[in-house]
Design a protein around this nucleic acid. Sequence first.
RNA 1: GCGCCUGUAGCUCAGCCUGGAUAGAGCAACGGACUUCUAAUCCGUAGGCCGCAGGUUCGAAUCCUGCCAGGCGCACCA
Length: 556
Amino acid sequence: MGFNPVGQLEAELISALEAALDKVLEDQAQNIDKPEIEVEVPREKEHGDYATNLAMVMAGRLSTNPRKLAEDLVEAFEHELVSKLEIAGPGFINFYLKNDWLYQTIGQVISAGEDYGQTDKGKGEKVQIEFVSTNPTGPLHVGHSRGAVVGDVLANILEQVNYEVYREYLINDAGNQMDLLGESTYLRYRELFGKDIQMPENSYQGNYIIEIAEDLKAEYGEKLLEIDEKEALVISREKAYDHLLANIKDDLAEFRIEFDNWFSERTLHDENKIQEVIDLLREKGYIYDKDGAIWFASTEFGDDKDRVAIKNDGSPTYMAADMAYHYDKLERGFDHLINVWGADHHGYIDRMKAVIQAFGYDRDTLEIIIVQIVTLLRDGKKVPMSKRAGDFVTMREVMEEVGRDAARYFYTMRSTDSHFDFDLDLAKKESTDNPVYYIQYANARIHSILDNAGDLSSEACEADLSLLKDESEIDLMKLIASYPDQLELAADRRAPHMIANYAYELAGVFHGFYNRCRVITDDKDLSLARLKLVKAAKVVLENVLRVLGVSAPEEM
RNA sequence: GCGCCUGUAGCUCAGCCUGGAUAGAGCAACGGACUUCUAAUCCGUAGGCCGCAGGUUCGAAUCCUGCCAGGCGCACCA
C-alpha cells in the first residue's frame, strides 16, 4: 500500500534540489533560511516535465542574480531520471525526464490492478461522513441528490487513500414535522371516505401522501375513523414514516449509495440523550435559562447569537437533538467528522462548531461541506420548482430520465462551491457532447482492442515498453501515473469533481492515442507494448469509474 | 443590514486554497480526417480589460481591501 509514482517522483526531485542547494550555499559560505522547495508541472510542454522557481525565490534572499543562481543549481543537481536541465525565463529551472519511470510505472499499474490508486495518505484515520439526512416526510428530490452523490463519491475517494470511512444517514424522525406528516396522511385518509377536509397551510400536499392514505384504507378499512383520533394520527404517522423511509432507502440503493448506519433521531429522545447532553453542558457552564427557555451559549465559541435548546413549551429544538447526535458521534471515537449539507444550511455551521467546542473538542474535528444548489435545465430553460408542496422533481425521476450513470457523473462533475445547472438534455444524449458517454466509450474501445488482440494480449506483460515514444503514448502514461496523486489531492481538498474531471481527461487522452497509434499491427513488438499500455489504461479507467460509481460497459 | 457561495470565451465550467513563463476544456461556429482495433472518435481555425477599482510583489485570474451583480441563508422550523 502507498504506491504513488508521481508523488514519489516529485519528492525525489525536491530532495535532489535540496541537496543541490546545500552544495551551492556551502560553496558560497552562506547561512540563510531555506524556503520550502516546490516543483510543478509547467503549463507549456516546451517548459519540460517539471519546473521549479527555487532560483528566483532564493535570489531574493541572497540578493543575487536568479539566472546565475540557477546555473549553479543546475551544475550541482543530480538525479538519475533527469535527462536534461534548462534555465528559462526569469530564472525557472526546467527538468526533462527520461521515460524510464513511466515504463516502470505502467508495469506496476497492471500488477496492482484494482488496487491501483490506493495509497496510505489517511493512515487508517477514522472518518465519519454524514450525508443526505433528510426528513422522511417525502421523496428525495434533486436538491438532495447532489449531496447524496457528492457524499458517496467523497467517501469512496477517502477510502482509496486509506481513511477508514463510516457512512451515516441521520433520520430526522422526531419532532413536529413528523406529526404534521401524520396529520396530512390522516386527513387524506378521511378524504377517501368522503369527509370534508381542510389541508393546513404548511401540511404535506404531495400526491404520495394520498397513496399512503390509500394503503391505510386498504389495511384498516374504516377503522381509523372509529378509534380515538390521537391513536389514528399515530398510526397514520408511522405508516407514512415506514413507507417514505423505505422509499428513500430504495432510491438511494438504486443510485448505488449505501450507508453503514441509519441513525434514528428518535433514539436520542427515547434514551434521554438530549437531557443528558444539556446537563453535561450546564455543568460546563454553557447552558442558561431565559424567558422560560433553555439556551446554549454558542456565542462563547464565535456564533452570532445564543441558541434555544429547549423551548418554553418544554420540547427540544432540532438544535438540541443535533447536539446530542454530535456528542454521540464524538463519543463513538471517530477521528474526524464530515457533514455534507445543502447551501440553505450554511448558517448552521458556526453554532454546530460551537457545540463541538463546548464538548471539549477542537472545532475542526467537525468539518462541514456545503453543496450549492441545483437548477434543472430542459430545452435550455430552468425547470420551475416552487417550494409549494408537491411541486418538485424527485431524484428518482431524474435518475430514470437520464440514467444512473449520467446522473451520478453530472452531480459529481462540478465543484461543490458552484451552483450547478443540470442540463437534462445533455445528460440524456448518447453522443460526443455527453461526458459520461465519452468516458464509457473509451472503455468500450479498450475492450474492443483486447478482443481483437486475442491471444496476443496475454503476452503483453512481457512487452518492451521502451518502444512507446509517441507523444500521445507518453501523455497517456503520464496521466495513468498521476492517478494516485490525483486521488490524494481530491481527498485533501474534499473535491470529488477533480476525479470526475480526471476520468474525462483520461478518456480524452486515450481517444487521442487511439486515433494516432494503431495498437494491433504487423509489428509484433510494438503491438505488445501498446497492448500493455492499453491494459494499464483499462485498469485506471475501471478504477476511476468505480470510485465515481459509474458503470464501465464493455461494449456500446 | 449581517454571513456564506458565485462572477473567467456566445453557453456550461476547470484553474484560485499553495502567486510564476503565451489563462485552459467541452459545447456552439468554421475547416479537415473513415478500404484501418467502434467516426458515440480525432486533428485544426476562430473566440478573453479572468465583474470593477485600488493595494502587496521582481511577477496577480490566484493573496489583501473596497465596491458592483446574482444565488442561498439570517426562528423558541426541521
